[in-house]
Simulated assay, not measured.
Amino acid sequence: MTMSIQTREIHYTAADGSTLIGYFAAPTQQTATAGIIVAPEWWGRNEYTEQRARELAEQGYAALAIDMYGDKKVTTDAKQAYEWMMQTFEQADTVVLRATAALETLAQQDEVDATRLAAIGFCYGGKVVLDLARSGAELKSVATFHAVLATQTPAQPGQVKAEILVSHGELDSMVSLEEVENFKTEMNAAAVNYQVLILENAKHGFSNPLADERAKANQVDLGYDAAAEKTSLTAMYELLDRTLK
């Protein structure tokens, strides 16, 4: 049974001075509930990200679809998305500063129990929430879908508080299985509680029903996979239910 929900936009400012606009969804109930930030693919905070936030709210969580580019900029053009994404990598701390601002904003909402926070992310957004966890953020859990796994700031022993779930497509040509092994090595060295799901025959973008359309329009190797989407979302909700409720 899904819950009735409420939604609104929330304006917030990161420590780097960027003006960001999040999309907040929460159950229409009186008691505060666990909060989850939803970090977007490189397209920006679009309808897909907002849909995932609404789905979380229908399952009893408060969710904030976050803005990483400022002024909720979105695109369907891969070259533009790449440009905006790379701008967030120019300064080493931009990604974590903006994600931290989003997490703090989420925690401040009346509907949110600030002691129960988590984060999920897709593609670029997966890197965002992994780097947030690596920074030592107060997160109970993190789940990623076809995430960018490489980082300039590897997890250090005792620093990551979150339990981590990574769902990765076996045929992902953008993030190799070698990079997955490197990620495992990093997590093991830092004694992080984590799990990696390798989804058979799935490509990068497997969770997004618009992946095939975007692939064709941009000549990039993306692909939607309904079975992989279902498996990864089921695993995510099992993690969230176990760590937040």
Rank of each mutant, 00 (worst) to 15 (best):
P154A: 11
E200I: 04
T243A: 08
S173A: 14
N208C: 09
A78Q: 07
R45Y: 01
A118L: 06
A92Y: 01
V112H: 02
A155V: 00
N201A: 15
L103N: 05
G60K: 09
E238N: 15
R134K: 07
L239P: 03
A14R: 10
N208K: 04
L199E: 04
M174T: 04
A26D: 10
N188D: 13
H168L: 02
Y69C: 03
V148N: 12
E9L: 13
T76E: 14
V148D: 08
E90Y: 06
D93Q: 11
Q29Y: 06
A62I: 01
M68H: 01
A99L: 02
I21E: 12
E9I: 00
Q219L: 11
Q30A: 13
N188S: 10
M174K: 02
A137V: 05
Y23M: 10
T76M: 09
T31P: 03
L132K: 03
V148H: 03
L240M: 08
V220F: 14
E55V: 12
E47M: 06
S141I: 05
A78K: 10
D241M: 12
D67P: 07
Q109Y: 09
E41M: 08
V196R: 04
A62D: 00
W84Q: 14
Q219I: 04
A202I: 04
A57L: 10
T7H: 10
